[in-house]
């Protein structure tokens, strides 16, 4: 789930890129402040996407300041100062990470399982703290885990069914960003479509790994072979679903009244998501010719 929801940098203005990085740095620092230095490893791009919405919708005044960082100690970088959006996002990052470890303990074998068990122990206190301040979100994600397990054990699964738990979970999390029922409805759809996109792309990306380890993957039937022809067919069909999800995401986003950070979010929806699709497809030997439909594509691909 890492890095599927990122901006397409060549299409960002320089100042927008700076702001995006400042929010990213801000979240990283917030994780360090709220929890521990170790928890900064749990930084995720999809949570930064959430922060963009949360900042865009909130009335809170935020400040950006130049600060030093462990990763680039010599140069001071612009960084978003402490604010309620970041605090919430840091809690959500920890909750997501904790449940991801639980999932790993269930799925993985031997060494990785051991590592995940170890991480569960280290993160337990942090999780309890996060779940206390964000009990609603912690319940949503716990529910999602149950649904996911039920789904993987059930017999009949279509792509829509397989996406549903993840998509619903992100939809409900996105919904918590506003108190206005109209906005909540739109945010739910935005979250749902983002979740759908992430789930499908993640499943595609893992297809070889899951085939080898015989793990659950919505694109693989039980005991079926995976040859090159079949694989390209799977990718071809999945692309249609991905496109449809992104277009629906864009349609909902255009209905949402949000003033701040709009251009960065637009960049992610219209270019960033597709650039991530392109990367995954190329990684699996399914190149997509001129796909982003923008000025930068021919220069950067």
């Amino acid at each position: 789930m890492f890095g599927y929801v990122r901006p397409f940098i060549p299409e960002l203005k320089v100042c927008e890129n700076e702001i995006y990085r400042a929010i990213y740095c801000g979240l990283c620092k917030q994780l360090g402040r709220s929890y521990s230095q170790l928890s900064r490893l749990m930084l995720r791009y999809d949570i930064v996407f959430l922060v963009l919405f949360s900042l865009g919708l909130s009335e809170e005044n935020v400040e950006f300041k130049k600060q030093n960082c462990l990763l680039h100690p010599l140069k001071k970088e612009l960084c978003l100062e402490k604010c309620s959006s970041l605090e919430k996002a840091a809690d959500i990052s920890i909750i997501f990470a904790y449940f991801k470890f639980i999932d790993n303990v269930r799925d993985e074998k031997f060494f990785k399982r051991f590592i995940s068990n170890l991480s569960l122990l280290t993160f337990k206190n942090m999780f309890q703290k996060a779940a206390k301040s964000q009990s609603e979100i912690s319940n949503i994600i716990e529910n999602f885990m149950d649904n996911q397990i039920n789904l993987e054990n059930s017999q009949k699964k279509s792509i829509d069914q397989a996406c549903d738990p993840t998509a619903k979970c992100l939809g409900l999390v996105a919904q918590t960003l506003s108190n206005n029922p109209k906005k909540q409805k739109i945010l739910y759809r935005i979250g749902y479509m983002t979740g759908r996109y992430i789930y499908i792309l993640d499943a595609l990306d893992d297809i070889n790994k899951d085939f080898k380890s015989k793990a659950f993957n919505p694109f693989l039937q039980k005991n079926a072979e995976l040859n090159a022809e079949k694989k390209s067919k799977i990718f071809e069909n999945a692309l249609l679903s991905l496109n449809f999800s992104i277009a629906q995401l864009a349609e909902s986003f255009e209905k949402l009244q949000i003033e701040k950070y709009k251009s960065i979010i637009k960049n992610i929806i219209y270019f960033g998501l597709r650039s991530a699709i392109k990367k995954v497809f190329e990684k699996h030997g399914q190149p997509l010719a001129l796909f982003l439909n923008c000025c930068c594509e021919s220069k950067n691909s």
């Binding site: 299409e11 277009a247 255009e254 637009k266 219209y270 597709r274 796909f291 923008c294």
Partner: peptide, 27 residues
């Protein structure tokens, strides 16, 4: 939309607004 477009095929009521890209800015 499945074939990679935004909005509607007739384009009249679509919210087609390709972010950041000047209109007609193609090769």
């Amino acid at each position: 939309q499945r074939s990679g477009n935004f909005g509607n095929p007739n384009g009249k009521d679509s919210y087609q607004s390709m972010a950041g890209c000047a209109p007609g800015c193609d090769l």
